[in-house]
Structure formats: C-alpha cells, structure tokens
Design a protein around this nucleic acid. Sequence first.
DNA 1: TTGTAGGCGTTATCAA
DNA 2: TTGATAACGCCTACAA
Lengths: 345, 345
Amino acid sequence: MRKATIKDVAKHAGVSTATVSYVLNGVEGKVSQETVEKIYKAIKELNYIQNFSAVSLVKKKSRLLGVIIPQTEDCKQLLLENPFYSEMISGIELKAREMGYHIILSGVDKGQSYLDVSVQRDLDGAIIMGIYQERFYEELKNVKIPIVLVDSYIHDKYFYKVGIDDEFGGYLATRHLIRNGHKKIALVTGSIRKDGVVEKRFLGYKKALREAGLFYNPDDVFENSVTYQHGLKIGRFLSETPRNITAVFATADLIALGVIRGMIETGKRVPEDYSVIGFDDIPISRIFIPSLTTIKQDIGDKGAKAAALLIQAIEEKTLSEPTREVLLTLDVIERQTVKNISIKD
Amino acid sequence: MRKATIKDVAKHAGVSTATVSYVLNGVEGKVSQETVEKIYKAIKELNYIQNFSAVSLVKKKSRLLGVIIPQTEDCKQLLLENPFYSEMISGIELKAREMGYHIILSGVDKGQSYLDVSVQRDLDGAIIMGIYQERFYEELKNVKIPIVLVDSYIHDKYFYKVGIDDEFGGYLATRHLIRNGHKKIALVTGSIRKDGVVEKRFLGYKKALREAGLFYNPDDVFENSVTYQHGLKIGRFLSETPRNITAVFATADLIALGVIRGMIETGKRVPEDYSVIGFDDIPISRIFIPSLTTIKQDIGDKGAKAAALLIQAIEEKTLSEPTREVLLTLDVIERQTVKNISIKD
DNA sequence: TTGTAGGCGTTATCAA
DNA sequence: TTGATAACGCCTACAA
C-alpha cells in the first residue's frame, strides 16, 4: 500500500491539506480543538508519516546535521579507530536525536570539498573535527550554514567552537610531573601544527617548565603522528637510549599507551623507571595495565555540547558573542603511571 | 546569492530544464554533444549543485543509508565506546561514500520504532547492528526497503545478513585452549540470548569440550553483559575462589581485558596462572599488556561488506539466494595470554 | 477557523 | 534531439 500523504489525511479527516499542515506544524489557535482531534485520528489510522524531503524542499531546512571526522591518509577509513572520535560522535548523536535532528556522518575525500554534501542535502549545520587546509574552511563559509569546529584554533568569527584549554591542559600535565619530582621530561606528540591543539599543549609544556625554572630542550620533543605506533617507537627509543629522562608527557593517550608498551617491551618498568602522563582519558586508559594517569576531558559531553551549540545557532540564528565558543573543563586523573621521585624510598 | 537551480542552468545554457536533467542523469545518446558541453559549462559557471531533497521527492530514492547501533540501557548513549561498533561504522561509511551514498547514524529510542526515520528520510536501505525485540523487526519489514542485519541469527528470508560463524569461532577459541593443555575452562560472556551471537559461541565452546572428552560444567559459565566491568568482576572472583580452572574463554575482547585486569589486581599472573582468550580482536587487544590472544574477525571489512551488500540489494533489487548472506572468515591470533601447560617446565 | 492555490527543485511523460 | 508540463509531498500567503 502506498504511503499515506498529507492529502490522504486531509481527505480522511474531511478537511483541507492546509489545515492538516497547520496542526502538523503546531500553529497555535488557528485550528479548532475538534478539527485537531479529527486530524490526529486520521494520522493514526493511516499511519501517516511526514516526508522530510518534501519539507526540506519547501522549508530549506532538513533537520540534518553534518558530522565530519578525519580519515587516515592511506586507507581513507574514518579515524574511528581513535576512540576519541567515537565518543564524540556518541555524544553528538544523542543530543541531536533528543533535539529532533539526525546526523550524517562522513569523511571527506582529499581535495574534495564538503560543499557538495552540505548543499545537496540541505544540511542545517555541521560539526567539523580535525583540522584541514585553509581552503576547506573558506568553502565551508560559502555554504552559509552554522558550523561548529571542534578543537580548532582557527581565528574566524564565522565559526562556532567547542574545545578545551589545551595550553592549560599541557601545563597541567607537565606540572603534575614536575610536582612529582621530575625535572627531565620528554614530550611525545603528534605533529605540532600552527593553530592545532597539539601546539597549544606544547606551549603549556614549555610554560610549566619555565615556571619551574627547568630547561627546555628541543631534543626532548618527539614529534610525529597521533598514533600508538609513534608512541611505541619512542618508548623503545627512550628506554634504550640513556639520556636521564625520568618522565614523559604524551599529548594523547594513544601515544602514551604506545610509549609505555615500548618501554615495558624493552625491559623497563612504568612508573618505577619512567613516569608517563597522557591526555584525553579515553576508555582504554582506565583498562590498561598499568592504568594511565592522564588529563581528562569529558569527550562525550564535548560532543553533546557541540551539538547543542550548533542546534542553538541553527534555531536562534543570532547568538551573542560570548556563547559562540564553549570551553570544557579539564582534570588531572591520577592513576598508576606517575611516580613521585622526590620521596626517596 | 541564491543557490543556482536547474532552471538557472537551463536559462544560462539556453536550453530547457528537461535537457539539463537529461545530462545530469547521464541519459545516453539523447542529447547532442554540443548541448552537453554547453550545459556543463553553465553548471561550472553557476556552481550548480543538485538538490537531493527534490530528487528524493520525485525519485523516491535518497542515496541515504540508515545505520543503527545499540545504545546503553541507561544513558542512551550510543555503544560507540565499544570499539567494535566504531570500526564497523568506519568500514560502512567508507564503502558507502565510495558508492555515492551517505549514512545517517542513529540509535533508536526504547520502544520507539525506526519506521519513522526510514520513511521520513526516504532511506534507501538500512544496516542494523545489535539485536532487538521481535516487534522491531516486524515493523522494519513494513518499510519495504532492503535491510542488512549484522551478526544476527534471525531466521527471516526478508533480511540480508552479514556475520561470522560464531559457533565455529567459539569452537576455535576453546579448542585453542584445549590444545594448549587446558582442561578446566571457564566461559565469561554477555547474556546468552536465543539467536544471539553469544549463544552460538557458547555452543562452539561446548562442542569443543565435548569433542575433547571434557566435562561441561554449567558452573563454569559466567553470564552477564558484554562489558569490561563484568570481566573485571569475574576475573577477581576466579582468582580469589580456587576451583582449579586454568583458562578462560571470554566471548568478547572487552570482557577478556576485564578478566585479566581482575586477575592481575588480585595477585595472579596471565598467562602464568591463567590463560585467557578473547573474541573480536579490537585494536586495544594488541595494545594491552599482555597483548591478548583472541579470535580475529576483520571488523572494518565486515562493515564494508555490509554496505556493499546493502547497496547491491538496493540497486539490483533482485539478489539470488546465496548472495543474501555473507560470512567472514575467522582466525586465531596468538599473542601473550595463553600458555601451553602441557609442556612442563 | 478553514480552504485555495502557487511554489519549492527535480524528474519524466509526451509532443514537437 | 529538445521542450512543455504535470507530478512528487508539503507549506503558506491569501482569500473566504
């Protein structure tokens, strides 16, 4: 049987399509209570379900949110293997659903713009994770839909933003190590790009060092990718190459886990020989043995906040300056990978 | 500036909208080469992008795939914390994108049907992960779009399916333990529901036991949820309650990791005191220390296969019986959590 | 309070 | 080979 349309409902209820449309859109006080009930009854009986394509077409609103996440260079697969993104999506989806939106999840092919998708689908807004080339953002602006950037330091009033104070986070992590008596602290990190979160964490690291009167040595910085493998390599390297380092700050948990594994594989112990602190607090960090001391950000909440901000922007159109950007709090989660070495035992 | 429509393009190229539509849809040999070029030129110049809402409306095809994943009971958040699902999505999204589809990711509220979404959005098909109440599937059938069920043993010709041979997997895992000299093997698992994957793995466990002439003891089965916490509890319990068990088969890596942690926390060693084998081979399993011996299924590929199958069903309409179901291969990945105890040392 | 009718951007049928 | 034009399902002035 053909799907019921608004016309069927109208006929069934003995009214016009306009009237049905009114009640569908909740126009107050325009339709008599009696008619409203008749219409609801017809809707029930016919199993009528509104067609969003048609609504989008006329309203130019789709109740659809685009969510873009980075993908691996090579296999183009989404970076969902990074639990960080999964958790974000989870938060976004829930909030979006609660507010009556659906999300279209997608990666974006290299060099291709996202413009097509957003225009084609009449997206009401988009949430972008990861960082891209300048051009990408410029194109995005042309679509003229609200966009929230997650963890981006792009300076452009056009975009809404949600993130954390990465510099403070980096500072917090490093200070935690310093307070535990460490003086020679390596930084293992993804690539330090201008305006990226990693750069800020790096700044925080240097700041904590400076504040403690410690010497910043560029040779203690191991920059590569935000992967377990990178951590692994450096962990091995560190434990096999004596350079009197006692602690490492990894700018992502995934890296930290690699570092630890690398060290353990090469016969060292954590935290007895090396202290390690991570960043993010992804679920594995609690599970891992030893469980990882890290800087916690509430990732799921971050996703929810991003969705809420976006939807607010979509629906209210006009957001006051201060609310255009939301910053989440950070905490040091002490677990088992940092040892206080100032207490002699 | 208003977005260009097909009319603008037609006017700009000096032809009718019908002609533009022809070339847009690649109708062969209907339009002269000359006209085709004129139209492409106009499209370029006007930055014309097709509006999918309009297309969906008339074609009743949206090039949109629904992807449903389970959510946690309480917080309703998507089960994306389970890396298993993230990887699947990743595979689905990539394949879908390659084939010109987008995915709408969503959980489904308890008791609510997915019917609404699929009808509202004119979904071309859907991929369902997790298992739901009977009613849910019945409703789904009414939408009359192709649906692929992932890891489901629902017996209904209507649905397409992709999965693995879970019974064989359970058998493989248990046999691996047995071959390593273990005779008293506990099973730690999520809830064994009729027609669920867990039930099949459980069957495989029993089969391997039987085949080896070992006694199956219901007391060695610890059934609860597919969570790290459940594993943790049982790990502790096992190591604190002597019952001459030497190995455990956990029906999910997440559980296995919990078991190991529980044992280690209570002073036992893995694999010296207990051998543990998992199932799935999620990324953490390789990272974890000790790294987990497990049954590997190529999760990303599973997602890709699911998407490919679905799209094929959508586009060809008529799939021959045998191709309606795809089974992926399984492998034992030997790592560090199983010890051969038949070799005395 | 309700109905009429035009239009949203596209496709597709039928003529030309 | 191309062009009018009627749908598709819905919304919304405007009229009644």
